[in-house]
Design a binder for these strands. Structure first.
Length: 555
RNA sequence: GAGCCGCUAGCUCAGUCGGUAGAGCAACUGCCUUUUAAGCAGACGGUCCCGGGUUCGAUUCCCGGGCGGCUCACCA
């Protein structure tokens, strides 16, 4: 894994401090021995060791540890092994009234609200399916159960058995007869109150949500839905390709030469081999070796890593689907991708109309296929294949784009497309036939030698996929890699590296094939209707936060 | 990488035109047998993100740093 934390960053948000030697708070008990947090950075030892003597947070945690001890003293294991639950809350609520007066049921989940009012206590229990109110009545409960209830806090996992009932105000409620503590929570949950679906003191700070996704899902269970949709997207992609005879494979993430895309890699090191390795930036090259080996239809869904900026639509680590299809060209690949998009969106959302940016994306109609150079010409009236290169450059500069010195005609065409055309795209469209200089792995276009047989699919103006008629002429491929090397000499850090092993593989003969790469995360965003990759990645990459251990010294 | 905004109690947030700070919730002690953002009473809880500067005095002003968000740049 890339080392994103050189050890020099310390975070001190909310770090509580108290002068060394100041008295410990009464009631804190003897179990809080002073220990030093293991420092991961230099230069802060004195301050940190002073800071962890006492703190509010430690008191809150200690209180809960003490409650767990009290449960143990009365013979209750606060961390038991199993609980026999008969239902999820959702099942009970679905036909609740029919259950009133019927059998007792049991549910398990997290205590999300507690309203003790003397000899009666109301609580809300949250499980994966939803939330249900619990009613505890002292007179109806054995003494030990009532006493156990007094040791329950917000956030604890409990199981209860009881009888379905409705309260005076009509809420579906379980009148509890038996209570089991399933896991005593010792770290207090952020307190979020809720009424009629409206949240108070909502826990929505994005940094917190991504860093502590578990809390996000507890406090905002609706955020799980995007990930359910994501799973449907992946499942549908697999089903689509499996159904057409594609074989799913897994190829190495660690590679001694990276390739298959224009991007900068993460570098890592293997100790035993004393070898510098790269995290893959694409799946392409190993899969093409499988084409050589006779796997005619093959695909992989896996993580690739690109050492670049992070924003709403870019993550250093993302999931790519690539498939390779022998004896097919990019026209057939477009047909297949179009069919796949429909099937996947239908499976994940139930519709071919997808809301995006307040507008509707329509996947029910055929997706237009337009040459990149034609789209540019339509937009700015410049025939980019024949116009003098200087004019392309001038247009870009006039538009305020910076043009690197190594930019060849192909880069200029791409630049014009990116600046003038791409922002205007919204409905799904295949943009085809890119310049060869930016496509070193694609076959020269059968009718136009300056272009290659390639397409990218844009949806809502964002690239979702990239594909070619794969270059299988090994001599041409070697020449293109050499061009890339020259490009790299001129300072293009994203130019591809010559991969001798790959070249030798295709020198044995790779069948003509179409290859397609699709960004699964973006597809999942589309299906889930979220506008940031971070809402579709469970644990998006963030700068590491200094986490201090507050309870490391127990027992 | 650049610009703008933010960081105050466990959580969500006020506030201090510079004199070391408040609320609600949570936690704690009580009261309360159909409540639901339960309620009432009490007592707790803070190096106001970090460092430096200015100042008699900085949480507040200035500079630097950290982390986050947004916009832009690069990339898929």
């Amino acid at each position: 894994m890339p080392d994103l934390s050189p050890g020099s960053r310390l975070r001190h948000r909310h770090a509580p401090h108290r002068a060394p030697g100041s008295p410990r708070r009464v009631g804190e008990g003897n179990r809080l021995r002073e220990t030093r947090p293991r420092l991961r950075a230099r230069g802060r030892a004195a301050r940190l060791s002073a800071s962890e003597e006492t703190s509010m947070k430690k008191e809150l945690i200690q209180t809960r540890i003490d409650k767990a001890a009290r449960l143990r003293e009365s013979g209750i294991n606060p961390y038991p092994y199993v609980f026999d639950r008969t239902h999820e809350t959702g099942e009970l609520l679905a036909d609740f009234d029919a259950r009133i007066g019927g059998d007792e049921v049991s549910v398990a989940g997290r205590v999300m609200a507690l309203r003790p009012m003397g000899k009666v206590t109301f609580a809300h229990l949250q499980d994966a399916a939803g939330r249900m109110q619990l009613y505890f009545r002292k007179d109806d409960l054995p003494v030990p159960v009532w006493e156990a209830l007094e040791q329950i806090d917000l956030g604890d996992l409990i199981g209860v058995r009881g009888a379905p009932m409705r309260t005076r105000s009509g809420e579906a409620t379980l009148q509890v007869r038996e209570l089991a503590v399933l896991a005593k929570s010792i770290r207090p949950l952020p307190v979020v109150k809720e009424k009629d679906g409206q949240k108070f003191d909502a826990w929505e700070d994005t940094g917190n949500r991504y860093r502590r996704r578990h809390l996000d899902f507890i406090l905002n269970p609706e955020h799980r839905r995007a990930f359910e949709t994501r799973a449907k997207v992946v499942r549908a992609c697999r089903a689509f390709l499996d159904g057409r005879g594609f074989l799913e494979v897994e190829t190495p993430v660690l590679q001694s030469i990276y390739g298959g895309a224009m991007a900068r890699p993460f570098v890592t090191h293997h100790n035993a081999l004393d070898l510098q390795l790269y995290l893959r930036i694409a799946l392409e090259l190993p899969l093409k070796k499988l084409l050589v080996g006779g796997m005619d239809r093959v695909y992989e869904i896996g993580h690739v890593f690109r050492n670049e900026g992070i924003d709403r639509s870019h993550s250093p680590e993302f999931t790519m689907l690539e498939f390779y299809w022998a004896y097919a060209d990019y026209h057939q690949a477009m047909d297949l991708v179009e069919a796949m998009l429909r099937e996947v969106l239908e499976a994940a959302t139930g519709s071919l109309q997808v809301e995006w940016d307040g507008r509707s994306l329509d996947f029910s109609k055929p997706i237009p296929r337009r040459r990149m150079v034609d789209l540019i010409e339509e937009k700015i009236g410049l025939s980019v294949l024949t116009a003098p290169e200087e004019e392309l450059r001038a247009r870009l500069v006039a538009a305020g784009e910076s043009v690197p010195p190594y930019a060849a005609r192909g880069h200029l065409i791409e630049g014009l497309f990116d600046h003038f055309v791409q922002p205007e795209l919204f409905q799904p469209i295949f943009v085809t036939d890119h310049p060869r200089a930016i496509s070193p792995l694609a076959k020269i276009h059968r009718d136009e030698p300056e272009l290659v047989e390639r397409f990218e699919i844009f949806i809502g103006g964002v690239e979702f996929g990239n594909a070619f008629s794969e270059l299988n002429d090994p001599v041409d491929q070697r020449a293109r890699f050499e061009d890339q090397a020259a490009q790299r000499e001129k300072g293009d850090l994203e130019a591809q590296v010559l991969d001798e092993e790959f070249l030798q593989a295709i020198e044995h003969g790779m069948p003509p094939a179409a290859g397609v790469g699709i960004g699964i995360d973006r597809l999942a965003m589309l299906a889930a209707g979220v506008h940031s990759l971070r809402d579709i990645l469970l644990f998006p990459q963030m700068r590491p936060e200094e986490i201090r251990a507050e309870t490391e010294d127990e027992e």
